[in-house]
Protein backbone atom coordinates (compact mmCIF):
# COMPACT_ATOMS: atom_id res chain seq x y z
CA UNK A 1 0.00 0.00 0.00
CA UNK A 2 3.01 2.26 0.38
CA UNK A 3 3.20 4.63 -2.56
CA UNK A 4 6.20 4.57 -4.87
CA UNK A 5 8.76 7.37 -4.53
CA UNK A 6 8.46 8.05 -8.27
CA UNK A 7 6.56 11.25 -9.12
CA UNK A 8 2.92 10.60 -9.98
CA UNK A 9 2.21 10.44 -13.71
CA UNK A 10 0.22 13.26 -15.30
CA UNK A 11 -2.35 11.45 -17.40
CA UNK A 12 -3.33 13.13 -20.63
CA UNK A 13 -4.66 12.51 -24.10
CA UNK A 14 -3.73 13.59 -27.61
CA UNK A 15 -6.35 13.37 -30.37
CA UNK A 16 -4.90 13.39 -33.89
CA UNK A 17 -7.60 14.95 -36.07
CA UNK A 18 -5.75 13.80 -39.19
CA UNK A 19 -6.45 10.23 -38.15
CA UNK A 20 -9.94 10.73 -36.71
CA UNK A 21 -12.62 9.61 -39.16
CA UNK A 22 -15.53 10.74 -37.01
CA UNK A 23 -16.80 7.18 -36.60
CA UNK A 24 -17.90 7.89 -33.00
CA UNK A 25 -16.72 4.51 -31.75
CA UNK A 26 -15.13 6.38 -28.82
CA UNK A 27 -18.51 7.80 -27.81
CA UNK A 28 -20.15 4.38 -27.93
CA UNK A 29 -17.32 2.63 -26.10
CA UNK A 30 -17.43 5.27 -23.39
CA UNK A 31 -21.19 4.87 -22.90
CA UNK A 32 -20.90 1.11 -22.56
CA UNK A 33 -17.78 1.12 -20.39
CA UNK A 34 -19.08 3.70 -17.96
CA UNK A 35 -22.73 2.66 -17.64
CA UNK A 36 -24.00 5.85 -19.22
CA UNK A 37 -27.69 5.30 -19.89
CA UNK A 38 -28.94 5.94 -23.44
CA UNK A 39 -31.22 8.93 -23.69
CA UNK A 40 -34.71 9.04 -25.12
CA UNK A 41 -35.76 11.43 -27.89
CA UNK A 42 -37.59 13.52 -25.32
CA UNK A 43 -34.51 13.77 -23.11
CA UNK A 44 -32.35 14.72 -26.07
CA UNK A 45 -34.89 17.38 -27.09
CA UNK A 46 -34.45 19.01 -23.70
CA UNK A 47 -30.67 18.93 -24.03
CA UNK A 48 -30.37 16.53 -21.11
CA UNK A 49 -28.56 13.64 -22.83
CA UNK A 50 -25.40 12.45 -21.11
CA UNK A 51 -22.32 11.91 -23.26
CA UNK A 52 -19.01 11.79 -21.41
CA UNK A 53 -17.23 11.57 -24.76
CA UNK A 54 -19.15 13.86 -27.07
CA UNK A 55 -18.53 14.87 -30.69
CA UNK A 56 -18.34 18.59 -31.42
CA UNK A 57 -19.44 19.29 -35.01
CA UNK A 58 -17.60 21.98 -36.92
CA UNK A 59 -17.40 23.22 -40.50
CA UNK A 60 -14.20 23.27 -42.41
CA UNK A 61 -13.40 25.22 -45.60
CA UNK A 62 -15.40 27.85 -47.43
CA UNK A 63 -18.53 27.49 -49.50
CA UNK A 64 -18.90 25.60 -51.78
CA UNK A 65 -16.00 23.46 -50.60
CA UNK A 66 -17.09 22.81 -47.04
CA UNK A 67 -17.00 19.64 -45.05
CA UNK A 68 -18.53 18.73 -41.75
CA UNK A 69 -16.09 17.35 -39.18
CA UNK A 70 -16.49 15.93 -35.72
CA UNK A 71 -14.13 16.64 -32.85
CA UNK A 72 -14.09 14.08 -30.02
CA UNK A 73 -14.52 15.88 -26.71
CA UNK A 74 -14.02 14.15 -23.34
CA UNK A 75 -13.48 15.97 -20.04
CA UNK A 76 -10.33 18.07 -20.43
CA UNK A 77 -9.08 17.16 -16.93
CA UNK A 78 -7.73 20.68 -16.61
CA UNK A 79 -4.71 21.46 -14.48
CA UNK A 80 -6.69 24.48 -13.22
CA UNK A 81 -10.25 23.16 -13.26
CA UNK A 82 -12.94 25.82 -12.77
CA UNK A 83 -15.38 23.12 -11.61
CA UNK A 84 -13.40 22.44 -8.43
CA UNK A 85 -13.42 26.08 -7.35
CA UNK A 86 -17.21 26.36 -7.40
CA UNK A 87 -18.16 23.05 -5.74
CA UNK A 88 -19.53 23.95 -2.29
CA UNK A 89 -19.14 20.43 -0.86
CA UNK A 90 -15.77 19.29 -2.22
CA UNK A 91 -17.36 16.67 -4.45
CA UNK A 92 -14.94 17.47 -7.27
CA UNK A 93 -11.27 16.90 -6.64
CA UNK A 94 -8.03 16.66 -8.57
CA UNK A 95 -5.73 13.83 -7.55
CA UNK A 96 -1.93 13.71 -7.62
CA UNK A 97 -2.12 12.15 -11.10
CA UNK A 98 -4.12 15.08 -12.44
CA UNK A 99 -7.41 13.27 -12.97
CA UNK A 100 -10.38 15.44 -12.07
CA UNK A 101 -12.68 13.13 -10.13
CA UNK A 102 -16.33 13.38 -9.21
CA UNK A 103 -17.19 11.92 -5.80
CA UNK A 104 -20.78 10.91 -6.31
CA UNK A 105 -21.67 10.33 -2.68
CA UNK A 106 -20.72 13.90 -1.84
CA UNK A 107 -22.47 15.63 -4.74
CA UNK A 108 -25.59 17.57 -3.73
CA UNK A 109 -26.63 18.28 -7.31
CA UNK A 110 -26.37 22.08 -7.14
CA UNK A 111 -25.05 22.17 -10.73
CA UNK A 112 -22.59 25.02 -10.08
CA UNK A 113 -19.93 22.90 -11.76
CA UNK A 114 -22.01 22.27 -14.88
CA UNK A 115 -22.24 26.05 -15.23
CA UNK A 116 -18.60 26.72 -14.41
CA UNK A 117 -17.14 24.20 -16.86
CA UNK A 118 -16.35 26.08 -20.08
CA UNK A 119 -16.27 22.79 -22.01
CA UNK A 120 -19.75 21.71 -20.81
CA UNK A 121 -18.47 18.23 -20.03
CA UNK A 122 -20.40 17.91 -16.78
CA UNK A 123 -23.81 16.33 -16.85
CA UNK A 124 -26.60 16.48 -14.34
CA UNK A 125 -28.74 13.35 -13.95
CA UNK A 126 -32.23 14.70 -14.46
CA UNK A 127 -33.74 11.21 -14.37
CA UNK A 128 -33.08 7.77 -12.91
CA UNK A 129 -30.87 5.95 -15.41
CA UNK A 130 -32.70 3.25 -17.36
CA UNK A 131 -31.59 0.77 -19.99
CA UNK A 132 -33.50 -1.29 -22.53
CA UNK A 133 -33.98 -4.85 -21.21
CA UNK A 134 -30.97 -6.59 -22.67
CA UNK A 135 -28.52 -3.77 -21.99
CA UNK A 136 -29.44 -3.69 -18.30
CA UNK A 137 -27.78 -7.10 -17.98
CA UNK A 138 -24.49 -5.88 -19.42
CA UNK A 139 -23.60 -3.06 -17.05
CA UNK A 140 -19.96 -2.75 -16.05
CA UNK A 141 -19.69 -3.93 -12.42
CA UNK A 142 -16.58 -1.78 -11.92
CA UNK A 143 -18.48 1.46 -12.45
CA UNK A 144 -21.07 2.91 -10.09
CA UNK A 145 -24.47 3.67 -11.60
CA UNK A 146 -25.13 7.30 -10.86
CA UNK A 147 -28.57 8.03 -9.43
CA UNK A 148 -30.87 10.92 -10.29
CA UNK A 149 -29.91 14.25 -8.80
CA UNK A 150 -26.13 14.22 -9.03
CA UNK A 151 -23.56 15.37 -11.55
CA UNK A 152 -21.31 13.00 -13.49
CA UNK A 153 -18.48 13.33 -15.98
CA UNK A 154 -15.65 11.54 -17.75
CA UNK A 155 -13.31 9.93 -15.24
CA UNK A 156 -10.69 8.88 -17.80
CA UNK A 157 -11.97 5.37 -17.03
CA UNK A 158 -10.45 5.74 -13.60
CA UNK A 159 -11.70 2.29 -12.56
CA UNK A 160 -9.26 0.86 -15.11
CA UNK A 161 -6.44 2.73 -13.39
CA UNK A 162 -7.54 1.33 -10.01
CA UNK A 163 -7.50 -2.20 -11.45
CA UNK A 164 -4.14 -1.71 -13.19
CA UNK A 165 -2.51 -0.21 -10.08
CA UNK A 166 -3.86 -3.07 -8.00
CA UNK A 167 -2.45 -5.66 -10.39
CA UNK A 168 0.94 -3.93 -10.50
CA UNK A 169 1.10 -3.63 -6.71
CA UNK A 170 0.26 -7.33 -6.31
CA UNK A 171 3.14 -8.16 -8.66
CA UNK A 172 5.45 -5.79 -6.74
CA UNK A 173 6.23 -3.52 -9.69
CA UNK A 174 5.43 -0.05 -10.99
CA UNK A 175 2.65 0.56 -13.44
CA UNK A 176 3.99 -0.07 -16.95
CA UNK A 177 3.35 2.39 -19.79
CA UNK A 178 0.30 1.35 -21.78
CA UNK A 179 -1.08 -0.76 -18.96
CA UNK A 180 -3.83 1.76 -18.31
CA UNK A 181 -5.81 3.52 -20.99
CA UNK A 182 -9.43 4.62 -21.22
CA UNK A 183 -12.02 2.84 -23.35
CA UNK A 184 -12.14 5.62 -25.98
CA UNK A 185 -8.43 5.31 -26.71
CA UNK A 186 -8.57 1.51 -26.74
CA UNK A 187 -11.47 1.30 -29.18
CA UNK A 188 -10.29 3.91 -31.72
CA UNK A 189 -9.90 1.98 -35.00
CA UNK A 190 -7.42 4.49 -36.43
CA UNK A 191 -5.42 5.02 -33.24
CA UNK A 192 -6.33 8.69 -33.36
CA UNK A 193 -6.46 8.88 -29.55
CA UNK A 194 -3.12 8.51 -27.80
CA UNK A 195 -3.12 8.26 -24.02
CA UNK A 196 -0.38 8.21 -21.42
CA UNK A 197 1.81 10.15 -19.02
CA UNK A 198 2.36 13.67 -20.36
CA UNK A 199 5.56 13.92 -18.35
CA UNK A 200 7.14 10.67 -19.53
CA UNK A 201 9.76 11.67 -22.16
CA UNK A 202 9.71 8.15 -23.63
CA UNK A 203 5.95 8.13 -24.14
CA UNK A 204 3.99 8.88 -27.30
CA UNK A 205 1.88 11.62 -25.75
CA UNK A 206 4.96 13.49 -24.50
CA UNK A 207 6.21 14.19 -28.01
CA UNK A 208 2.77 14.54 -29.57
CA UNK A 209 1.64 17.12 -27.00
CA UNK A 210 4.67 19.21 -27.98
CA UNK A 211 4.03 18.96 -31.73
CA UNK A 212 3.74 22.20 -33.75
CA UNK A 213 0.31 20.94 -34.84
CA UNK A 214 -1.02 20.96 -31.31
CA UNK A 215 -3.88 23.07 -29.97
CA UNK A 216 -6.18 22.89 -27.00
CA UNK A 217 -9.79 23.98 -26.60
CA UNK A 218 -10.36 27.48 -25.17
CA UNK A 219 -6.69 27.75 -24.32
CA UNK A 220 -6.93 31.44 -23.48
CA UNK A 221 -9.01 30.70 -20.37
CA UNK A 222 -5.96 29.42 -18.54
CA UNK A 223 -7.59 26.13 -17.53
CA UNK A 224 -4.59 24.16 -18.86
CA UNK A 225 -6.53 21.23 -20.30
CA UNK A 226 -4.71 17.91 -20.50
CA UNK A 227 -6.48 16.90 -23.71
CA UNK A 228 -4.51 18.02 -26.75
CA UNK A 229 -5.58 18.05 -30.39
CA UNK A 230 -3.37 17.79 -33.45
CA UNK A 231 -4.81 19.92 -36.22
CA UNK A 232 -5.42 18.45 -39.65
CA UNK A 233 -3.96 18.88 -43.06
CA UNK A 234 -0.55 20.31 -42.34
Amino acid sequence: MTESAKPAPRWGMVVDLDRCTGCQACTTACQIENNVAPSSAETADKGRSIRWMDQLPYMEGEYPNVKMRLLPRPCMHCDHPPCIKVCPVGATTKGADGIVAQIYSRCIGCRYCTTACPYTVRYFNWYEPTWPDDLAQTLNPDVFVRPRGIVEKCTLCHHRLQNAKDKAAAERRDLAPGEYSPACADICPTQAIAFGDLDDPHGEVFSQSRSPRVFRLLEDLGTEPKVFYLREGE
Partner: peptide, 23 residues
Protein backbone atom coordinates in the same frame (compact mmCIF):
# COMPACT_ATOMS: atom_id res chain seq x y z
CA UNK B 1 -41.85 0.72 -27.00
CA UNK B 2 -39.47 -1.63 -25.26
CA UNK B 3 -39.66 -2.09 -21.52
CA UNK B 4 -36.93 -0.18 -19.71
CA UNK B 5 -35.55 -0.80 -16.31
CA UNK B 6 -32.69 0.22 -14.11
CA UNK B 7 -29.39 -1.60 -14.17
CA UNK B 8 -28.61 -4.95 -12.66
CA UNK B 9 -26.48 -3.43 -9.89
CA UNK B 10 -29.46 -3.52 -7.60
CA UNK B 11 -31.60 -0.59 -6.63
CA UNK B 12 -30.02 2.72 -7.59
CA UNK B 13 -29.81 4.76 -4.39
CA UNK B 14 -31.27 8.21 -4.30
CA UNK B 15 -29.03 11.21 -3.68
CA UNK B 16 -30.03 11.28 -0.03
CA UNK B 17 -29.29 7.57 0.33
CA UNK B 18 -25.87 8.13 -1.21
CA UNK B 19 -25.04 10.77 1.37
CA UNK B 20 -26.28 8.56 4.19
CA UNK B 21 -24.28 5.61 2.87
CA UNK B 22 -21.15 7.74 2.81
CA UNK B 23 -21.82 8.92 6.33
Amino acid sequence: MSRRRTGSQGPVPSRATGVVLAA
